[in-house]
Amino acid sequence: MKRAASNATAGPVYKPRLSARAKRMRALEMFLGLILAVIVLAPVVWMLLSSVMLPVDLTAKPLKFIPDTLTFERYAQIFRSETSSDPAYVFRMALGNSLIVAVCVTLLSLVTGTMAAYAFAHVRFRGKGPLMMVILFTYMLPPAALIIPLYRIFTSLHWLDRKAPLIILYLSFIIPFIIWVMQDFFGSISRTFEEAAQVDGATRLQTLIHIFLPIARPGAIATGILAFLMSWDEFFYALIFTSSLNSKTMTIAIEEFNGKFTIDYGMISTAGILGSLIPVLITVIFQKYIVMGMTAGGVKE
């Protein structure tokens, strides 16, 4: 695994001289790579472009790929608007809500999920198999199966339209996912270190914290990013359980640009760019860990 990790980040190493065949091969690879880059980036570039195109240009036919006039009005509107009825303002607030919810969910799910996953991977207890099955089943249940009773319970607890209940809801499906991924990952980590530490007289909790967690760090970071993305992405619960600026998340704010009377493609694109910024930055920055953690977790050796 270590090898895979170090290779993943190492840049290409070039051999000094290439045969004609190898040259042709490299040309083909570069060509395919170029096509790949276009396919990956073109939609993002288009989203960026449509966020700064005039509404009239967006619906023009034939379409001008490079518009004459650019407008940054929509970005300004999102950052500056102070009227609570303005969808741009709502979006900005929703972005903040999404961030708070996602950060809380990530931290809480990592702590609790890691503990549970460790128990599944390295501690013996009765009923482990069935419990894992139940956890997996809860993850498979579509949210629509729970929504009506959940709504009734949340209403009676006065938990509607608040961030904390939303966090708890998200945890309820993200924790099972984390347990599922992490227990595989933990299972792949050898117990030799731990056993050695225990022989030295360390308590089990000490070994978990001082020996095991440092080894498990890349996996934890990768899982944390997954948890963040899942929370950031969530739509259905937010659709039902949020309604005002108190708790409305980014996904719902974007959906509201998309309604029966309100399709505003320029604004959807602007909101799309801003809504993607944080997760894209996080994944690009922590890419190394994602590659290390997720693959180690997924693939048992």
């Binding site: 880059a37 288009w46 950031w232 996904t251 799309g272 809504g275 994944t283």
Partner: peptide
């Protein structure tokens, strides 16, 4: 290798609208 990950990080709601 570093740009390939971008689409995955884009939220589903944004992806669908886009």
């Amino acid at each position: 290798r570093s740009i390939i990950i971008i689409p995955w990080a884009i939220p589903t709601v944004v992806n669908g609208s886009l």
